[in-house]
Nucleic acid binder design. Structure first.
Lengths: 334, 334
DNA sequence: CATAGTTACTTAATCGGTTAAGTAAATAAA
DNA sequence: TTTATTTACTTAACCGATTAAGTAACTATG
């Protein structure tokens, strides 16, 4: 059975392909009667338009790209849910690209977007963000681009973030208030804006409470954090840490086990994390819960707004959605 | 700046578009010298081929679809990682579609695939699998289709599963061996093959140990499991349960809290789960760990094999990758 | 030396839609 | 009644690549 095309419908109904196309797109140029005949036959023959043909002609693909570092991460998974909810509603398709924190992969992916494969891009950049700055600046001039969470400061376009600095400030303050005096921040990258923001808030709290900001206050991890983390905790002799990624929070539990540190007695932990199991961990994990779903939704909504009306200036549409601190036993005062 | 097309390259080099196309595709019809000239100019002008033009002509899109119920689930997230790893290696793009357990959405998605948008499909079906049977049978005749995990028995194509029956048998046996006598299986759907398989293994173990199989041995949950679960645990008076989805495992912890049941003293739990935090839960969760990454990888590998060589009969390529029981404290003998 | 074969191209058709421009007939306005 | 406008189509160009078929020039073969 051949694939049903517009031409086949045209032949069967003794009409031109133009008429068929217009009828299917509910053009006002077509009479009610003809439109019905066409649509009925289309349904009967189970006609499905070829998306590539129309994308080629219309120069728009009804497809957006989501570029993220990792998918097995509650934050990104939730964000995708938010994005997808909007996309499905608008009849758009979602291409997912994973960079696995490789800026090289990221670059290759971004380059592909110059082909017109997608109408817009949502991205949360790699830790080596600096490398992609140029490509992103370039790309943002060619099609609508919205950052979420991991933004690239220098690129002039919309950015959906959470209140990273403030959230870190509140988290740090909480640790101080439950008795910590030697607090460490476990960070993932020196380059990420969100990390810098969190560090800012962290420092602000330390300063406010007149706690020393030392060389070791912030530790950076890239991969294979486990081993490094053990070292850090051993060396730093922290009594409280803030894990700025979901993975790092788990790593702290692991390291504590290895080092025979009791949480929260010997060490208190706060995680920037959307883990649904946070409250069932031992001890239950105090978290900075980021509004992942909402951020994804906001980013997608903004993107579609720009796609619909090209006069929307994305640069001016940035948005900050606050995180929430959920206090649990991993920061229980002893 | 206009988009660079093959025609522009042709004009600049005073060659035909056919030559350009062939040169870029390393056709042997083109002289070494011309090919180099073309490729150099292409690089210089940053030429990126329009994927829709070539997809339209070649009737292949270098794109595959992954259809899953949910993304915020460790199993599916890991599976996608496996799929993506293979796809990226083969230069394929991955479209992700979420059904959110709605067979209606699933049907709509499957219908769209008749358009030729994707070259192949990887799917883990909705709980209401029966509804999609027909569409899937149809689709499997039009393009390569591979099931992973949640398969549709009746559709004649490759299926990548884990040893669900055996895994459930082993899990049940484990519960019995640590002293449980009144075991419940928390299931998600009556229709899913993997559920039926798990129930089979569950019954086999019960029978083998001469434990009664009652009407209440298996309980089905769809949405909003929390409330129902509390009821079930209260009513059923189980001393051991097997949660057959990741979500249900968490629900058990939640319900135990509500009902003031102590895990594992009052109730032992095993979860079919890939939660990375399983070992840090309180109590740490005994899990049936499914090889999600490997399953995704296997499914994708098989799909690409079929895409490369259309003579591969997918029906005969099904594969079972064993799960592994990780015994932790949620089933600790008292 | 004539014929066949190879090399390195070009021409033109094609994929399946969309759309600008054209047209004949019907209707409205002057 | 004549001209203008609207309606409901058709024709044909087009999007940007691929590819079957054609060709001129050169090389190899018998």
């Amino acid at each position: 059975m051949e694939n049903v095309t517009i031409r086949m419908l045209a032949e069967k109904l003794q009409l031109s392909t133009a008429t068929i196309s217009k009828a299917l797109n509910n053009s006002h140029e077509i009479s009610e009667e003809t439109r019905k005949r066409v649509q009925d036959l289309a349904k009967e023959l189970n006609y499905v338009p070829n998306p590539y043909a129309s994308s080629l002609r219309k120069k728009s693909s009804k497809t957006i790209a989501v570029v993220i570092p990792e998918i097995a991460d509650s934050f990104f998974a939730e964000a995708i849910n938010g994005i997808e909810a909007v996309a499905q509603e608008k009849g758009y398709h979602v291409l997912i690209y994973l960079t696995h924190e490789s800026s090289e992969k990221e670059q290759a992916i971004l380059k592909d977007f110059q082909s017109g494969r997608v109408d817009g891009v949502l991205i949360s950049v790699t830790m080596e963000t600096a490398n992609s700055e140029h490509s992103l600046s370039q790309l943002s001039k060619e099609l609508p681009l919205v950052f979420f969470d991991r933004v690239c400061e220098e690129v002039a376009t919309a950015k959906i973030t959470t209140n990273d600095s403030e959230a870190a400030y509140i988290a740090t303050k909480h640790l101080i208030e439950v008795g910590c005096r030697n607090i460490g921040l476990l960070a993932a990258s020196e380059q990420l804006t969100i990390m810098r923001e969190r560090i800012k808030g962290f420092y602000r709290a330390l300063t406010e409470y007149q706690l020393p900001v030392t060389n070791n206050s912030v530790t950076y991890f890239t991969r294979e954090a486990n081993q490094l983390l053990s070292d850090t905790l051993r060396l730093g002799k922290f009594d409280g840490v803030i894990a700025t990624t979901e993975k790092l929070a788990t790593n702290v539990y692991e390291a504590a086990e290895t080092l025979k540190l009791q949480l929260p007695k010997d060490l208190k932990v706060i995680g920037f994390s959307n883990l649904s199991t946070a409250r069932f961990l031992y001890p239950s994990l105090t978290t900075v819960y980021q509004p992942a779903f909402e951020m994804g939704k906001a980013a997608a909504t903004l993107l579609f707004k720009a796609l619909k009306n090209s006069h929307v200036t994305l640069t001016q549409q940035s948005m900050e959605i606050p995180s929430q601190l959920f206090i649990r036993n991993s920061t229980l005062q002893q």
